[in-house]
Design a protein around this nucleic acid. Structure first.
Lengths: 205, 205
DNA sequence: ACTACACTACACCGTGCAGTGTAGTTTCTG
DNA sequence: CAGAAACTACACTGCACGGTGTAGTGTAGT
């Protein structure tokens, strides 16, 4: 049995299309309510191809989670640099954090979608990419540690601070508007969350 | 006649047993992966009785959510009174909030289970008990408003403060330990969350 | 042109499960 | 005791879906 098919030009595109459709449908309709036929149709591909690529439905879910995780971490890293890169003054910190939160909260593959995926996978996937499931938090933690070193924050436990920032922004938005998040509704909540975070973690003068 | 059977209302014990088994199984295995046969078996009742009581599976889920919501709100109200009832000094506020959070976070039908139920119901239930889905938050908000009136907190928007307290405690715990929460693991996180909350919302001297 | 392979279309199987119908048994009540 | 209501046991239908097998088509490389 040939385990790995020799990839053809354009094969990676089909794989991505399947992953994309699966992510969209899994998040929108749930894992069990999404049929593999629907995924195939959504990807413009035959069902057989889906099975040829991923073997079974659970493996497909695992691939979706892994792919989404990598994408999200990359996005977070990039966005952190864009928004918090050159911030050295306390005055600009709030705006920068709000900008970061707004990006990640309202992105197509943002914190909400990833959280949903992790919940779908929970219990079905025998923790392979699970160890890196909290990479997003770690990325934020590292950046907060740098801000603390720069004297802008007091964060003895950066990972905890990251969890708190995430909770005050993404979790609050997620709890209020369970799936249908719009930038307009999210923004005031994000601003308030960042302000509360800064009240708790700002470096005292 | 294909008329609708008038749903039976007697024997509240059996009804509760069904609700209980359904909640346990829905939360543990998910809605789609839980068969009505399993619910009936778990409740020690015939499948037919389940259908006589609740009509169909989605209606059963709705009943579970409504029942759990009422129970949770009652528990929250009681626990809030027990822990925060006579608190008028800032020194005792932290311990009281931690005690409250610990109760609700580790209870059998606590914040985590209710959040899971709301997610299961989301999209399946045409918002009947949905309007009261944020009653828990409102209950906390009301109590925080009282604490603000007593001069212990600064909370211009009590509902927002409640969302932040909930996020800093229950959401953080839920994000880290997705389903398997033990009091031992939760406690330090809850203490840290309450402390962060107080840093953000304490009345400045 | 030949071969190898990615891919599709489609039929097909097995199964698990929602929901129903019903006959028979227990239990409550007048 | 009589009769109704609650409940069980069980058989049964219909369907959706996961997964497979296969014959055939398009396409790339030699």
């Amino acid at each position: 049995m040939p385990t790995t098919k020799t990839l053809r030009t354009g094969s990676a595109q089909k794989r991505d299309a399947i992953l994309d459709a699966a992510r969209r449908l899994f998040i929108g309709d749930g894992f069990d309510r999404t049929s593999v036929d629907a995924v195939a149709a959504g990807a413009g591909v035959s069902k057989r191809t889906v099975y040829d690529y991923f073997g079974d439905k659970v493996t497909l879910l695992a691939a979706v989670v892994e792919s989404a995780g990598k994408t999200l971490v990359a996005t977070i890293d990039r966005t952190l640099t864009e928004t918090l890169g050159g911030v050295t003054e306390a005055e600009r910190l709030e705006d920068a954090l709000v900008a970061f939160a707004e990006q990640i909260a309202t992105q197509t593959l943002g914190s909400a979608e990833y959280a949903t995926l992790l919940r779908l996978a929970h219990g079905l996937i025998s923790l392979e990419g699970e160890i890196l499931a909290d990479e997003p938090e770690e990325a934020v933690a590292q950046r907060l540690a740098e801000l603390a070193d720069a004297g802008l924050l007091t964060a003895p436990d950066p990972r905890l601070a990251a969890d708190h920032l995430i909770a005050l922004t993404f979790s609050v938005v997620g709890n209020r508007y369970h799936s249908d998040v719009t930038p307009e509704k999210a923004r005031p909540l994000l601003v308030a969350g960042v302000q509360a975070f800064l009240r708790a973690y700002r470096r005292e003068a």
